[in-house]
Every structure is written in structure tokens, then in C-alpha cells.
Design a protein around this nucleic acid. Structure first.
Lengths: 349, 349
DNA sequence: TTGTAAGCGTTATCAG
DNA sequence: CTGATAACGCTTACAA
């Protein structure tokens, strides 16, 4: 005498067929976009039966039969980073527009989680992969690639793996930063980056900085450190830089949004007044215009990047086995010049 | 003469069984956590065959047979909101820890997208749903609920729908804000909210504000407006408030992180100096401590909320059909008092 | 401990 | 235009 009304089991194609007085096949056709091959009468009957039963085709069964999961997988290195979210947003919209669903997995920059998630995505037979993940291509990833799962690398490239890539033009970005800083009169620069071993884009930026700084005859150095640890190492790096003797105006260049945040905090913790030192960051953040006197940034076109990634992937998907060479798409950043790289006119006179 | 090496088709349980010289069933058992019921010898043979073939069970097939997708669906109203992401992060971790995978769908606060996504999640037979979405329960959602899919509402409650709820203690949150503001000497308050029709939590906060403001004999008012439109209406509201004659110190209270951002921008655009007016927000953001003189906030325990949501859901899942009454879990915020609600001592003398 | 066989809900193939 | 029927890859009684 259980009073709980048994949850009306999900209806199947068979039940719809029965109610409509037609065959499974016809119902299947109705829901697979082949309605034009059914008589008006039949269409109506199926429609009403389906509605009455609240029928939805079971994707699991569909995927099983046809091998089409209509799923795209995405690996995100750090979901708490607004940049990643913005890109993901773009990827998702593009996928949806083409009838694919996106399953996003966050790896927290942890190779173990990355492997787990890849296994999961493989188990669900995703048809393609957008990867923004740590370091070396894991065995899992290579296998997926070998098995013919198309993949596009986002913001990072994985040496051994030949795949499409979408991201920022990192070299050009550094050049733009250097252009701006030196045109503002800064001649002694400290480049601050997160550890480069995990991400190729970090490596490229750092190398380019060193190379171009030298070529342009600017002073300074580049260092990379982990932000997870206590802030002391970062603060020390900044203090040392500030204390070092130099004739030329000093500026800090932050390799990404995380660094910009950490540096801004460190500066504030040490009571360094804005204007004492130049400050510029790669990646635009909500608050960069807000904190006095405004932080100059190079903004990535996150939405474009996301959309491009998805579209590159879906194109591969459509032209299976055509073995086109890998595509590399690199976007230009946009300079948002603000007060943090404006030297005080008063001190110039 | 195609040179493309045909992508080695994904291997199946049958192939593994064949290679290992055993039956499908044994392989299935091996991968379903029933290894202890297999002889050592067999385990080894299966293991090596599986590895050799790089075999992974097909979740689609699994789900089809057993009805267990091991999938949890989550609807997020606005993925670009850091609060949502933080909560999502918590949900995801908790799900993963219990062997479930999370499929996140962003609705951009759009009922149409919400319906689409719900249909999708239903098609993939998710076993449970975490919902943080707009307005009225859609027909889709009701049907899912009726069909017995457990769901937990996050940060918002949906009138007609009886479901578990996890979120902030909104009334208490408003009270804490009022306590803090009045203890700091502010006596004329403007409460700024996004439109309340979509989200119950916004409604509760707004009503509570009006009620308590009056009860405490404070001056002021509450208004709600859309942030999407041009900033002018917000700026006007603030200007009017500032211009209105009043003997008592004025303060702005922002209903959530989005509002805090918009208000901070508006204040800056109008050149209103910090200290001229009090400022406080619900939701902590990366930059609140950064913008001078630091913005006072009430921080939500996002991770706890996310975890609680997932765990409530998974518990329901385990105790099917026990028809326990809905659970309501409400968390307390944490006050982070900063300069923006510190009245200038100098002006007090 | 191991294997056999019957589905799970769809789609694809082939007839009518 | 419509409908049987055989897969798809896996789990799960039921046997042995």
C-alpha cells in the first residue's frame, strides 16, 4: 500500500509506436529529422502520441547504435580563472549552435585529474576534444588522438601532438607590451610569470620577453614562481626589484590574470603607491579599470578564441579522414592603456 | 590507396573477452568492481588483454542496460558570474568524489536555453539535477521532477516545486548588512538589486531589506534595475540618492556581486570619492579588497554551498522512494569589513 | 568461479 | 511511404 506514486517510467519509442499504431521505425524516423518521408497523417499521430507520453529519444541508446554521441569534451586547466570561463562560454555557444553539447571537465592543473577526466570523456565517446590542460600529453590523450578523436589545443600546444591550435599570438603580445612600456618611458622591467613547465604559452611569452628585452636594450629580468605558495616569494621578488639601483623607470609586467591579481595584492600589502612603479598585465579583468589608477592590460578576445576552437573542431569532424595539416589560429590582443603605465608628468619636469 | 591509417576502432568487451579467452560476462565483472569473484589467473589475463587493446567500457552501453548514467546535470543561470563558478566547482568535486560526473549547462538567464538544456539532460538520462536557474519552473522541469529525477534548488526556490534547497540565509544576510551599516553610523540607505522576478533569493533580500530598514527606523529605499541596459539608469539612481537631502550618512547596499561591480563602476564614472558615501555588497569578489579603500562585503561560503547541494542530491539518490520531506539548508555569510563602510574619523569630530 | 542468453532503446538494412 | 529484424556494447538473471 505504498502511497508514493511510482515515478512514471520514462516512455520508450516502442510505447509511442504502440499508442500511435505505427512501427518503431516510423517513430524513429519522425525523431531523426526524416519527417518528410512520412505521411501527414502518420506525423500527426506520432506527434500526439509522443506528446501524450512526453517522449524523448534516449541519447544513450542513440549513441550506442550510431556511434554518434553528439558530445564534445572540453578540458579546462583552471575553471576559477575568469579567462578560462570566458573562453569556455564561447566554445559552448558555438557547439550548441551546431547541435553538439559540451561536457566540461576542470582539471585544477592536476595531471591525475586530467587523466581521469579524459578516461571519462572517452567512456562517453565524445566526438571531439577541446584541450586547455597541463604539460605533457598524457598517454590517455595520445591514445584518444590515435583513435581518431579530433582535438584542438587551446592556449597551449603539446609538443609531440600534431593537432589544431587556437590561442593568442604570444610573441606579438609580448612585443606589444614592450612597445607600450618603452614608449611610456619605462626602461627597467620585471616580468612575472607562473611556472612555465606546464604551459607552452607561458614558455613562449617568457622567452620572447627575455629575447626582446635584450634586443631593445632594456634592463630587467624575468622570473617565474608559483602563486599557490605563500605570497612572500612574490613580495620578495618585487621588493628586490624596487630596491635595485637603476637610472631608468621601473615597471612590472604580469604574464597573466592570476599574476596581475597576486601582484596587485602584493603591491598593496607593501604599501607601494601606484605611480611609484609601472604595472601592466596580460589578460583583462573586471576590476582592472577599477583599482586606482587603472591597470593597463592586453585583453585577449576570449569569445573569439572559444568560438574559433569549437569551429575548428567541428570542421575536422565534418571532414573526417581528409588529413588536412594542423591549423594554427593566433589572435591579437587589444591594448587597454590606463593609469598604471602613465608616468607622473610632474616627476618628468 | 589512402594513406590515412584507419583509426583503430575502439575495442569492445567482446574483443577483450576473445583475446583473454574468457566470456563477456567475466570481462564485464572485471570492470564492474566484482573482481573478487574472479580467479587470480583470470584477472591477470583480462587485465593484460584489456591493456593491450586499450579497452574502456562504453558508458553509453552501460547506461542503456542498467539505467545508470552516473551523470548529474547542473543548470547555471550565469556562468560568467564568479559566484556561480565557485559553487559549481564545489558541486563538481563532491560529485566526482562519489563517482558521478557533472554535466554543466549555462542558461544565460534565458528560459529558452533552460528548456533546451533540460531536454538535453533528460535525453542523457541524468540521475539528478542541481538547478540554479531562472524564474518559474518550466514544464520541462516539472516533468523531470514528476518522473522521479531528484533535484536540488540552488540559491533560488521555485514556488510550486517541492524540492531540496541549498543556499544562503538571505534574511539573516540582510540583517547582518543592516547591523553593520547602522553600527557604522549610516542612517540613509539605498538598496540596489537586479530584477527580482527571476530569482527568489533576490526577492527575499529585497523584501527583508524594506521591512527591516523600516523597523530599525532607517531612511532610504530599495530599487531594482537591469544591469544589461546602459549604465545610465543606475547612475541616475545613485545621483538622485546622493542629491536627496538628508541629515544622516548615506550608504549603498549592493544585492549581489554583479551589482557591486556595476555600482563601483558608476561611482567611479561619476567621480564620487570613496568615503563620500558608504558602500557594501553581498558576495565577495577577488578585487573587493583591492579597490580603495576596500569594499566591505558579506561573503557566501560558495564551496560549502556547492558541496552541500551535491551531497543532498546524492543522498536522495541513494534513498529512492523514501519520500523524505524537502531539506532546506541555509548558510550564514561572513562579514568582511573594509574601508568602504568606515566613515572618516576626521569628519566626525 | 565461470558461462549462456536475454534484453536495454535506438537506428540501419532490407523488404514490401 | 512503411515495417520487420538485426545489430550497437554492455549488464544481469539464471545455469552449470
Amino acid at each position: 500500500m505504498s502511497s508514493s506514486k511510482a515515478s512514471p517510467r520514462r516512455s520508450t519509442i516502442l510505447e509511442v509506436a504502440y499508442q500511435a499504431g505505427v512501427s518503431k521505425t516510423s517513430v524513429s524516423r519522425y525523431f531523426s529529422g526524416e519527417r518528410d518521408r512520412l505521411s501527414e497523417a502518420m506525423q500527426t499521430r506520432i506527434a500526439s502520441a509522443a506528446k501524450r507520453l512526453n517522449y524523448r529519444p534516449n541519447q544513450m541508446a542513440r549513441g550506442l547504435k550510431g556511434g554518434h554521441s553528439r558530445l564534445i569534451g572540453m578540458l579546462v586547466a583552471d575553471i576559477l580563472n575568469p579567462f578560462s570561463v570566458a573562453v569556455m562560454h564561447g566554445v559552448e555557444q558555438a557547439c550548441r549552435a551546431r547541435g553538439f553539447s559540451l561536457v566540461v571537465c576542470n582539471t585544477d592543473n592536476d595531471p591525475a585529474q586530467e587523466r581521469d577526466h579524459l578516461a571519462l570523456l572517452a567512456a562517453y565517446r565524445v566526438e571531439g576534444l577541446v584541450i586547455n590542460a597541463a604539460g605533457q600529453p598524457s598517454r590517455e590523450l595520445k591514445q584518444l588522438a590515435e583513435q581518431g578523436t579530433p582535438l584542438v589545443l587551446l592556449d597551449r600546444s603539446l609538443g609531440e601532438l600534431e593537432a589544431d591550435e587556437v590561442g593568442l599570438d604570444n610573441a606579438r603580445t609580448i612585443d606589444m607590451a614592450l612597445d607600450h612600456l618603452s614608449s611610456q618611458g619605462y626602461g627597467d622591467l620585471l616580468y612575472l610569470s607562473e611556472p612555465t613547465s606546464q604551459a607552452s604559452s607561458r614558455q613562449i611569452r617568457l622567452e620572447r620577453f627575455e629575447q626582446q628585452r635584450e634586443r631593445r636594450g632594456l634592463m630587467g629580468q624575468a622570473i617565474s614562481l608559483s602563486l599557490d605558495k605563500d605570497a612572500s616569494s612574490l613580495e620578495k621578488a618585487i621588493t628586490d626589484f624596487l630596491a635595485s639601483p637603476s637610472q631608468r623607470p621601473k615597471a612590472l609586467l604580469c604574464a597573466n590574470g592570476n599574476v596581475t591579481l597576486a601582484v596587485t595584492r602584493a603591491l598593496q600589502a607593501q604599501g607601494v603607491m601606484p605611480g611609484t612603479i609601472g604595472l601592466m598585465g596580460i589578460d583583462e579583468l573586471d576590476w582592472c579599470q577599477l583599482v586606482t589608477p587603472g591597470i593597463t592590460t592586453l585583453a585577449q578576445p576570449t569569445k573569439d578564441i572559444g568560438r574559433a576552437a569549437a569551429e575548428t573542431l567541428l570542421q575536422r569532424l565534418e571532414s573526417r579522414g581528409e588529413a588536412a595539416p594542423p591549423r594554427r589560429i593566433h589572435y591579437q590582443p587589444r591594448l587597454l592603456a590606463r593609469g598604471s603605465t602613465q608616468r607622473h608628468p610632474t616627476s618628468t619636469a
